[in-house]
Simulated assay, not measured.
Amino acid sequence: MTLCAIPPINIITERLPHIFPEGTEHRNYVVREMAARTIYAMFYVGAVEGADEWIRPSQVTDMTDEQAAKTDEESRRAWVANSMSTKKARPVNAWYAANSREPVRDETIRTGLIPCRAVVERMGIPTTSAKPKYALNAEFAALFNPNLTGDGLQVAIEAWQAAHLSKAAMSRLRLMKQGATAAKDAVSVTFPNGEIRSLSPGPSSVIAKAVIEVFAPRFLKQPTVLWLSESGNKVVARDEKLANALGLKIDATKALPDIILVDLGADAGGKDMLVVFTEVVASDGPINRERKVALTSMALEAGFDERHLAFLTAYLDRSGQPFRKSISELAWGSYAWCASEPEHLMELWAGDSRKLIN
């Protein structure tokens, strides 16, 4: 059986960021140079689903630029045979050091490409076996056809993403596309009472919209928006009537959070209410310890009861730089929520010790 055609490595490198856009989990593992070279090596040995050809990580690390340029059938098959030999002499100008096979295997393949269903694993091969056992998903491999360009390529990429990426991954991608669109267009937000407000273009507005339209009805019983502001202290919404009814004082001159949600709970009179101070993080500004102390102090002065306070930092996605950058700063006793995974809520527990089993 003739080995498959090999796409130029520059095409692989250029297309990976489009196939795995921002929001893809462990994106760095599947768009970096090592990923492109791993995929090229798979093409080189003919390791594409259905061909019954497989690769092992050491073949990626043993590849050289000189060998990669020899794309005729005879050279490829000779190299494959030699790369599997126990008597082979390792080239001095190999792509990677011999011990780099672990990041190829554990990061690029197992953590990156396999969960994205871009690579398939040969069944029946023990984990510790040295036998080759990885191959490209056939539909994924087809995305690197040099003759596939323009709109045809984009349609093919989107079809592959829809068929192979998980629901969570697709949710992330849709959210990231919304963020890109919001960079140019105003963001319309529907409040719990049906009122519609418009926010300025930008990723912060996308997160704020998700907090109000998704987080609030999912995690609060009777949510309402008491306060909503944008960067530059622009007040978008301020419910004076509710604040007065609850005996709360909102001083716009203070360093208020981006959003203040109120959950009236089961008590319409406000005795069972929960006030959720929310910071939207598109770049920086999470609720850290100092911010929590300041907001608590301000809330107590305004007439809030500390038992009815909650603190939330909202992000677009936990794979993004803003989350990774600020996770270590988040205040104990606060919550973190990501719009890309709306059903989950992270709690930084600060109460008494408790067992993990009832």
Rank of each mutant, 00 (worst) to 15 (best):
Arg197Cys: 04
Phe304Tyr: 08
Ala89Phe: 07
Asp185Gln: 12
Thr13Tyr: 15
Glu14Phe: 08
Leu330Phe: 15
Gly202Pro: 00
Tyr335Ile: 08
Gly270Gln: 11
Glu25Thr: 14
Leu248Lys: 04
Phe43Thr: 00
Ala69Asp: 08
Glu213Gly: 02
Lys271Val: 14
Met63Pro: 03
Ser85Tyr: 11
Leu173Gln: 07
Gly247Phe: 11
Ala216Asn: 02
Trp349Asp: 07
Leu295Glu: 03
Ile260Cys: 04
Glu121Leu: 09
Pro201Tyr: 05
Glu290Tyr: 12
Lys271Leu: 10
Thr128Gly: 10
Ala182Ile: 05
Trp349Leu: 10
Leu165Arg: 10
Asp352Glu: 10
Gln59Leu: 11
Leu228Glu: 03
Glu25Cys: 10
Ser328Val: 15
Glu74Arg: 09
Leu300Cys: 09
Thr71Met: 13
Pro103Glu: 07
Lys87Gln: 11
Asp72Cys: 11
Leu175Glu: 03
Leu348Arg: 11
Pro103Thr: 07
Gly285Arg: 07
Arg32Ile: 01
Ala243Cys: 11
Val60Trp: 03
Val31Leu: 00
Asn358Pro: 15
Tyr134Glu: 05
Ser353Glu: 15
Met298Trp: 06
Thr128Trp: 13
Val104His: 03
Ala252Arg: 09
Thr278Pro: 04
Thr127His: 08
Ile250Arg: 07
Gly150Gln: 06
Ala47His: 01
Pro8Trp: 02
Ala5Ile: 12
Pro257Gly: 03
Arg15His: 04
Ser188Phe: 07
Ser353Gln: 15
Leu312Pro: 00
Ile19Gly: 01
Phe323Thr: 13
Lys209Val: 00
Gly265Lys: 02
Glu301Tyr: 04
Met123Lys: 10
Lys88His: 11
Glu53Ala: 14
Ser283Asn: 14
Met34Leu: 14
Ala51Asn: 14
Gln178Asn: 15
Thr313His: 07
Pro21Ser: 00
Arg238Asp: 06
Tyr29Leu: 13
Met34Asn: 10
Asp151Asn: 09
Lys325Phe: 10
Ala169Val: 05
Ala237Met: 09
Glu343Phe: 10
Ala69Tyr: 04
Ala282Pro: 09
Tyr335Ser: 08
Ala255His: 12
Arg101Asp: 11
Glu121Phe: 03
Tyr96Ala: 01
Lys249Arg: 14
Ile125Asp: 06
Leu300Glu: 14
Val225His: 01
Leu173Pro: 00
Gln154Phe: 14
Ile327Lys: 12
Asn137His: 08
Ile327Ala: 13
Trp79Gly: 00
Thr181Met: 13
Met34Asp: 10
Leu199Asn: 04
Pro8Val: 00
Met170Arg: 15
Leu113Pro: 00
Ala163Pro: 03
